[in-house]
């Protein structure tokens, strides 16, 4: 009984292999031919711009706080019009595990993942990316959201003129 089972167990895998020998391969000849991953693939990170063309990132440190391997660092700064932005922003992709937690934490949709996966290199410093290398010229996956047009602190539009806001209170008057 058990002898029969052992013989079957030895031959069957060979048979499976033999069968696949005559089928069309599923692999492609990388790098001559490249796979196009699904749009939600978690590849290299980018920083996007808002529909007005301004940098979306406000250097809020939420991505760096969420990152389980601590590969994001930055310094915030203030532009003359009160806009908070990243003076510098660095992602060390040699440490990144492409978990996507940073993009989930990002409140401004600035940080997004792309389908780019070709990051292998012998030069580690090539994958330590500064803001200039991360920042793209478009909105990425969402071309609507604009943090500063929703946050009521009057950076993109004068105070009290964002959608759903009443004009500033006149503090010199007690009239309704």
């Amino acid at each position: 009984m058990s002898l029969w089972r052992d013989i079957r167990g030895t031959i069957l895998p060979f048979w499976v292999t033999l069968r696949y020998l005559f089928r069309r391969p599923v692999t492609v000849c990388y790098p001559e031919r490249k796979q196009i991953p699904a749009p939600r693939y978690r590849g290299r990170l980018i920083l996007t711009r808002d529909p007005d063309g301004e940098e979306r990132c406000v250097a809020c440190h939420l991505c760096s706080a969420a990152c389980p391997v601590d590969c994001i660092s930055m310094q915030a700064a203030e532009r003359e019009d009160g806009r908070r932005y990243a003076a510098w922003f660095r992602i060390n992709f040699s440490r990144c595990i492409f978990c996507g937690l940073c993009t989930e934490a990002c409140p401004t949709l600035a940080l997004q993942m792309t389908a780019e996966y070709e990051l292998a290199t012998r030069e580690l410093l090539q994958v330590v990316c500064e803001k200039e290398e991360l920042l793209i010229d478009g909105c990425g996956k969402n071309d609507q959201y604009n943090f500063y047009r929703l946050a009521g602190i009057g950076v993109a539009a004068p105070r009290g003129s964002n959608p759903g806001e009443s004009p500033p209170v006149d503090i010199r008057s007690n009239l309704p």
Partner: peptide
């Protein structure tokens, strides 16, 4: 309903004011 907003004041070299 709409959100109430305020103007901020310049309170000198030490304190930032964001009344909203």
């Amino acid at each position: 309903g709409p959100k109430r907003t305020y103007q901020n004041q310049n309170l000198g070299p030490f304190i930032v004011h964001e009344m909203n």
